[in-house]
Computed example of a mutant assay.
Amino acid sequence: MMTNLFSIFEPSSSIFNFSFNWMATILGFMFIPYLYWVSASRWSILWSKIILTLHKEFKALLAPSHLGVSIFMISLFSIIVYNNFLGLLPYVFTSSSHLAMTLSLSLPLWLTLMIFGWLTQTKHMFAHMVPQGTPFVLMPFMVLIETISNVIRPGTLAVRLAANMIAGHLLLTLLGSTGPSLSSFVLMALIFSQFLLLILEAAVAIIQSYVFAVLSTLYTSEID
């Protein structure tokens, strides 16, 4: 029961032992237009632009019959760049700096391309072993060189990504471990250099993800 006129402004007032005063704040959300909740945020707009740009890049590298591969490559880029940036956080395991992670991405992709190419386009795969205009004497050597370069592709993809990610993290760790033994002036310079290295690592995280996806796309485009 209302004891005085101003008791309606008390947060503790209730009706049937249930407080309705703070409920009014929540009920206010019901009057917000529906488009407010479904409109894209700045982050989602930025990510959509990145995906569209990547799709245009991959589409230029692929044959018209393989345009659907760009969706897979964008997903691959997203997974790698997510793990790369996650590894920049303190005390977070950097999975993309280990061969177990990078090989699990590159090896199945390479095996799938090889199996598909040799089963469906055997003549094209054989022709790809010998570049056009190669002298007859050099053909056996060219086949050997092309075979080796083709076999080591998953390894180079995996090692490139892992080595670039672990190198920056190792440098940051080595520089950070010398901090307690330095003077105040040198420590400030070290913190500034660590900040610059962190920016560089963020750029490397994006670049290496892009390189991995682009090279995978180029390997896919060879199977026309």
Rank of each mutant, 00 (worst) to 15 (best):
L89A: 13
V143P: 01
S193R: 04
W47P: 01
A60M: 12
M2P: 02
F31I: 12
A60P: 03
S104I: 08
M73C: 03
M188Q: 09
L187T: 02
T120C: 13
L161A: 07
H124N: 13
I191T: 06
P180L: 08
M165L: 10
H66K: 15
A205E: 01
V143L: 08
L105Q: 05
S14P: 00
L52M: 14
M73L: 12
I145P: 01
I191P: 01
S216D: 03
H55W: 01
I15F: 09
F93W: 14
I79M: 12
K56D: 11
Y36N: 00
L197Y: 07
G155H: 09
L46Y: 09
L190A: 04
S95W: 09
M139K: 15
G133I: 09
P131Q: 12
L200C: 09
S106L: 05
A127K: 05
E146N: 13
F77K: 01
A202Y: 02
S70T: 04
A60T: 11
S48T: 09
I148P: 00
F72Q: 10
F185M: 13
I74C: 08
L171C: 01
T3L: 13
T102Q: 06
M73D: 02
S12L: 12
V159E: 03
F29I: 11
L76I: 10
I199W: 03
T178S: 04
